[in-house]
Design a protein around this nucleic acid. Sequence first.
DNA 1: CTTATGTCAGTGAAACTGATATTG
DNA 2: CCAATATCAGTTACACTGACATAA
Lengths: 146, 146
Amino acid sequence: MNDARSTSPEQLGVLLKDAQSVLHQRMDEALRPLDLSVSQYACLHHLHQAPGITASELARRAFVTRQAMSVLLKGLQRQGLVARADEQGPRRERAMTLTSEAEEILHQAGAAVSEVVGLMTAPLDQADRDDLARLLLACRDSLLHG
Amino acid sequence: MNDARSTSPEQLGVLLKDAQSVLHQRMDEALRPLDLSVSQYACLHHLHQAPGITASELARRAFVTRQAMSVLLKGLQRQGLVARADEQGPRRERAMTLTSEAEEILHQAGAAVSEVVGLMTAPLDQADRDDLARLLLACRDSLLHG
DNA sequence: CTTATGTCAGTGAAACTGATATTG
DNA sequence: CCAATATCAGTTACACTGACATAA
């Protein structure tokens, strides 16, 4: 038998889901005043980190289909937060970019999100936070190319 | 300035979301042969751990509204996996229970999920897994009553 | 011929809010 | 009157699959 205090696989999966669920709710509350959904924030975040990437690449980074990302981008374009390049690239690619308004909103959103994550990690010291990041990264990558 | 290698708050939030996204996809694939969605599996999982609880309590544990949980339970009832108690409790409460068929399916589902989580945590030793569980628990609780 | 992007169309699971009835 | 459960109704954001045209 295993040690009764060791974590079962199912329990670990549930914990990951729970933590993400509650974080999502708190982020949703924090972003609502800025008229941004969590999905939209994540999209802008990725676009900020890699300006000019295509919708398909954006979809891959968010782990959704390009059709789903297309819907999200249409909404953001309607809100004037993203712009499509006029010219096409090599494979019909159209570079997506943040508008200056989006940069400003993203700045505020980042602060709001940081506050939420700060609350989440309040009981952790810096070593714990680095551990958490390292472990989550390992889990993600193991599922992706394991 | 902080150490350049330390993790930014936003990055930690994105990592948590990413890990959960990919885990959700893998679980979805693993559970599809059993005709179970991830949400349905989680519902059965909670019901197995606390047999006879109400729909409202189930909703709280899954971090959704009782209306959303009600829809989920209706689907599971149609599939013959959960049953509502005939008699009402103190506050119109109706105890929800798993059918014997559900217990059997949940057994298979647990094995499938364990395999996925096992893959996810393959690069981690037992100390890392316990750390991850401890940290996720702390994050969840800090957001809930922080 | 193959592959990747973009796009149109339809669908579906799962969440939300709001309102109402019942019961302790 | 208040609080908690349950339930009905409507809505919505967001994901999916499938199909097609286009370009390298």
